[in-house]
Every structure is written in C-alpha cells, then in structure tokens.
Design a protein around this nucleic acid. Structure first.
Lengths: 212, 212
DNA sequence: CGTTCGTTTTACCATATGGTCAAACCGAAC
DNA sequence: GTTCGGTTTGACCATATGGTAAAACGAACG
C-alpha cells in the first residue's frame, strides 16, 4: 500500500494521513497551477513547484509520481469546469439571454480563473498532446449538440442567422483573450481593470450579432 | 572582426561570406520560428533548432550568440508585420469597409503565418518579458491613435457606437484564435479548413456590430 | 603553393533538472 | 516505551541543455 492510495479504511490512522494527503496534494496542485500558468509545461520546474507548495522536491514526488502526473491532474480537473458554462445553455430559455449569459459566465471564468485559462491555452497551443482525444470526442460532440440548439433558435427566427459553431468559437476567443493576453490588454489600457469594459463591450457586441 | 559582423568591405571575400551569413541566418531564423512556435521558449532546444536548420549546434551559435538572441531577433522582426494591418486603417476610407478590411488582413495573417502568431502568443502569455516596453509605448500609442479614428467615425454617425479599443481587442482575439487554437478549432470542425468559414463569419459579425 | 580568413566541426564543460533510494522522522496504537 | 506505517529528507544519479574553445576546413588571393 503506498502513499498514492486515498482509500479510507483503517480508522484514525488513515483518516489523519488522508487529511495530510489531501492538504498536500491540494497545495501541490495550487502551486503547480501558478507555475505552469506562468512558464508553460517545460518552463516549469519541480523545484519551483515544490518551493511554491512549501515542500521538498522528493516529497512532492511522493504525492505525484512525475511532473507529468501533476500537469495531467490539473488538466483533468480543469476541463469540466471549463466546459460547464456551455453546458448550461438552456434550450428552453430566451435565446439572446441564454447566449449573453453564456458569454458572461465565460468572461467571469476568465476574470476569476486566469491561471486555469492560461494553462489551458498553453496546452492547446502545444497541440493539446494530452487532451486531444477529449477535444475530438467530448468537446466536439458537446459543441455540435449545443450548436444544434442555437441552430434551432435561428430556424425559429429567435436570433439572427449565424454559424453556430463559429459563434461559439467567438465566445471562447473573446473571453479568453482577456485572461490569456492580459499583459497586452493592460499595456494598452494602462492600469485600468479591463473587465468592466470588456463585459459591457461583449454584451453590446453579442446583442448586435444576435438581434433579429 | 568576428562572424557576427555583416559589414561589406573587402570586395569578393566579404560578399560571398555575407551571402553565406545571410543564407544561414535566415535558415536559422526559419527553423527557430518553427521550433519556438511549437514548443515555446523553454521547450525549444538549440539542438532541435540546429537540426531543423541543417547546422550543428556550435555552428548555430556562431551566427547567434545565444538562444535568447535568436528568439529576440525573431520577435523584433515580427512586431512590425504584426501591427501593419492596423496601421493601414485609412481615416479617409469607408468606415465599415476599412474595419472589415482590417479584420480580413488580420485573418489572412493568422492563416498565412500561424507560426508567427503562436510565437507572439507565447511571448505575451509569458508576460511579454522582452517586448513589454514596446507594448506599453508603441503598441499603446498606435492603438490609441487608431481608436481615435474609429471614435471619429462613431461621432460622425458612420458606424454604431462601440468602445474602439475593445473593438480592436475583438479583432485581435477573433483572428488570432484561429491560428493559436488551431488544434481545438480543428478538433471541433473535423478535417474542414476553418478559414473560409471563419472569414464569412467574421464579416457577418463585424457588419452587424458596426451597422448603424 | 601557401597564406588568410570566414566557416564548420570535434571535444568538452557547467549547470539544471526530472527522478530515485534508503534512511530518518513522527504520531498513534498497543 | 516500543512498534508500525505513513511522511519527509538528504544524498545521489543520469541526462539534457546552453554554451565554449580550439582545431580543422576550404575557397580565394597573392
């Protein structure tokens, strides 16, 4: 039985150890998220992650068998959160409000989880080596399904005709831009917080795109 | 006098050597662009770049004094090309046509120079350590100036009111998305070439945003 | 031919980095 | 207090990688 096991028999002993496990694994993931998001996969070092997590490098490797394992764990936990806003599109709701709500939730994610956004961006830009399969299956079918909903709205004349898939791409692009290219955005805007402006802008933009 | 010198006295000798210099420097930059764009700065190795350029590593370092020098040279050459489309906004032209033209030129860049796009994206995402100053000065003033033009069009009622700076961000985001997140886009679309669809979509989108 | 000078290669180095291992540690149960 | 099992550490290793030095190469010129 090694340390990776998170099983929960053995009364007190294993309760307290699993508590430590939980705490440390979370600390590691949090630290790793910061480092990976800042430097990308290859730019991140175990030393930096360990230091950020307040552990020694071998101790870190006691909780995750490799750098890759940490990275993969992060990605795995991310994907669901990342696609949730899209899943929330309600076919029964008001089309414009639904899409505006989607945009808003996505922008909120970009604002509140910029590290996660960047991590994801790095992975995709590198060719998505570890999540390509997920993209080609889960993501693809989710997008197709949601695009179907949007197409239904268009067919019923509830919103102006647009390519639904490219519309979804546009939401991704416009919202993630504020997280991933944060530095550029701030360089242009000065010290102002970009997000209030972004929110207003995106609302206007999508209202106009969808208006019948 | 070392090899870095590109001076041009000494008749034939230096002509032929500068020819070699030019050829090899170009080969190195081309190779490095591919490698950096694929793996990011820290993921790229001199060995890979050298092999891709058909040179040995020490030979590579005969032409550029360091990995950083190669990277910096690439970035430097890039920035101008990247901002050109924005510079071409003609205050005298038809507002909608001008902005649509800008979008189109930017999308063409994304299609024809995806490596450059990704290189740029990596740099920004890493916090733009080597071009932050340029962003905060050249880029910022260029955007402000061009935003002024757009604002003028709005004031004269030629296009619908939008925040001009966020409008420019939107152009960047929407066009670069197709280059930088290419893998994701293709995963969703299947084997289809995304660009024809993207072009039609973006034309529609910006027409609606700008329509009075 | 032989010198010259830009170019290329061979051999090499220091450091960084992912990862291993066995010993030490430590709190809880007996 | 001793034992037990999970946890932590110090020492260490192999490899990768950015970079250097000096010798070898080769085409042009006298």
């Amino acid at each position: 039985m090694n340390g990776q096991t998170l099983g929960s028999r053995k009364t007190r002993r294993s309760v307290s150890s699993s508590r430590i496990q939980k705490r440390n694994r979370e600390a590691i993931l949090a630290a790793a998220l910061g480092v990976f998001a800042e430097a990308g996969y290859s730019g991140a070092t175990l030393d930096r992650i360990a230091r950020a997590a307040g552990l020694s490098k071998p101790n870190l490797l006691y909780y995750f068998r490799s750098k890759d394992a940490i990275y993969t764990a992060l990605l795995q936990g991310l994907l669901d959160t990342w696609l949730d806003p899209l899943r929330m599109l309600d076919p029964e709701g008001d089309p414009v409000a639904e899409i505006l709500g989607y945009v808003r939730r996505k922008l909120d994610l970009a604002r509140d989880y910029p590290l996660e956004s960047r991590l994801f961006a790095y992975e995709i830009m590198q060719g998505a080596p570890r999540i390509r399969a997920v993209l080609e299956q889960d993501l693809r079918s989710l997008v197709e399904e949601r695009a179907g909903i949007i197409r239904g709205w268009i067919d019923r004349g509830r919103i102006a005709p647009v390519d639904p898939v490219h519309l979804i791409f546009s939401v991704w692009a416009l919202t993630q831009h504020y997280a991933d290219f944060d530095v550029q955005v701030r360089a242009v805007l000065g010290e102002t917080d970009p997000f209030p402006g972004a929110e207003a802008h995106l609302r206007t933009v999508f209202e106009r795109i969808l208006a019948t």
